[in-house]
Nucleic acid binder design. Structure first.
Lengths: 196, 196
DNA sequence: TATTTTTTGTACCTTATCGCATAAAATAAA
DNA sequence: TTTATTTTATGCGATAAGGTACAAAAAATA
């Protein structure tokens, strides 16, 4: 147990509040005052606990991506059938993308690209997520091929790219207001056509 | 010829400068001072000629989308073969997405989503582009089906969504630094797999 | 109880930002 | 030449932003 004055805030909850705000408004449009309110902290405490605005944003990105990574583990890896695994993964993603009112899509895909050029570290974060997803899809496709679930004609790397393209369009369209049912149809058709 | 003092700036060039700056930094991270420099105008003249920052941004979006619409006409509609037409369309898009250093992807897809919730008109612009592309792809696929170029098993609306997903991933990945050759492979594979 | 350690919260500083008021400048028409 | 019209360009003013100094507060330890 630490020595000094106890913290008034819950670090996890504060970061979640920051994440929600960045998710809605992006990095540049969010002020520290907004953040202070959303995190239930005052600015100096924020700075002391989490660093400056960019650092908080990147921590929020990290927290958000944890959800996606969790989906990769529990759905894509753990489910024996590739087909079912992909559908479960997209379902999980849609729960997140369409889980707020209004729907906000993906924090990374919908807010990081506009900052990626001005903030190289954010660009790195974006690249990191993209390549992790590409790799996860590719590995899973290779396994399915080895197990004979899908044709040898499927090219794992390129198919992985298109599966990620599907995930990205779900994220973007969710934020643009497309309904979850509509998006589910797109995801289902993608799985059907790309996995054959 | 108008009565008063002649304009110092070229309206078309000024808007192009604004577009480039918004393309790099997004709406919120761009200041009017940055814009004034990029447009070679002073702030009051900007305000007088183009309105406030949001309005300039939307005019830039509009100008940018004109390029995409042009690609739809010249490549997708004008080329007899759907397969070749799609490849030409994606090629044209990649020239734009990868045409700067560093590559900046698509102004709409990479910068509008983060503003879409705070600026409803921007959300409308985003929805507008998405549905125009969906419609254009769908119509073209229907025609190809009628002409017997592609199978009746292809579902035009859903395939259109996935073609647009491909375009979106090209935009996002270009901005994240993926090379044009790499992206060309993805586009080619998408056409091959989705059109069959 | 006294000391040490950590967080809090007020207040502040510097800089940036948006939008506009205003006068000078430059041209066409009267 | 005079008047009307339009743009330019300086610069104002109010506000918002990011970041930090500093003293008070709250707890553990000696």
């Amino acid at each position: 147990m630490p020595r000094g004055r106890p913290r008034k805030f819950d670090e996890e909850a504060a970061l979640k509040g920051a994440m929600l705000l960045f998710w809605e408004k992006g990095l540049s449009a969010t002020s520290l005052d907004d953040l202070a309110q959303a995190m239930n902290m005052n600015r100096p405490s924020i700075y002391n606990a989490f660093g400056n605005k960019d650092e908080i944003y990147r921590k929020a990105l990290d927290k958000f991506c944890g959800q996606l990574d969790h989906g990769l583990e529990t759905a894509l890896e753990a489910i024996p059938s590739l087909h079912k695994g992909l559908e479960a993964f997209f379902d999980q993603a849609l729960e997140v993308y369409c889980g707020t009112h209004p729907a906000m899509g993906c924090l990374m895909i919908c807010t990081a690209p506009s900052e990626a050029l001005s903030h190289p570290e954010v660009g790195e974060d974006l690249r990191g997520l993209i390549s992790r997803l590409d790799n996860a899809f590719t590995q899973r496709l290779r396994r399915a091929q080895k197990e004979g679930e899908i044709s040898k004609d499927v090219q794992p790397e390129l198919t992985a790219s298109l599966l990620q393209a599907t995930l990205q369009t779900l994220a973007l369209r969710a934020r643009a207001g497309t309904s979850k049912q509509e998006l589910k149809k797109i995801a289902g058709y993608a799985v059907k056509r790309l996995i054959e």
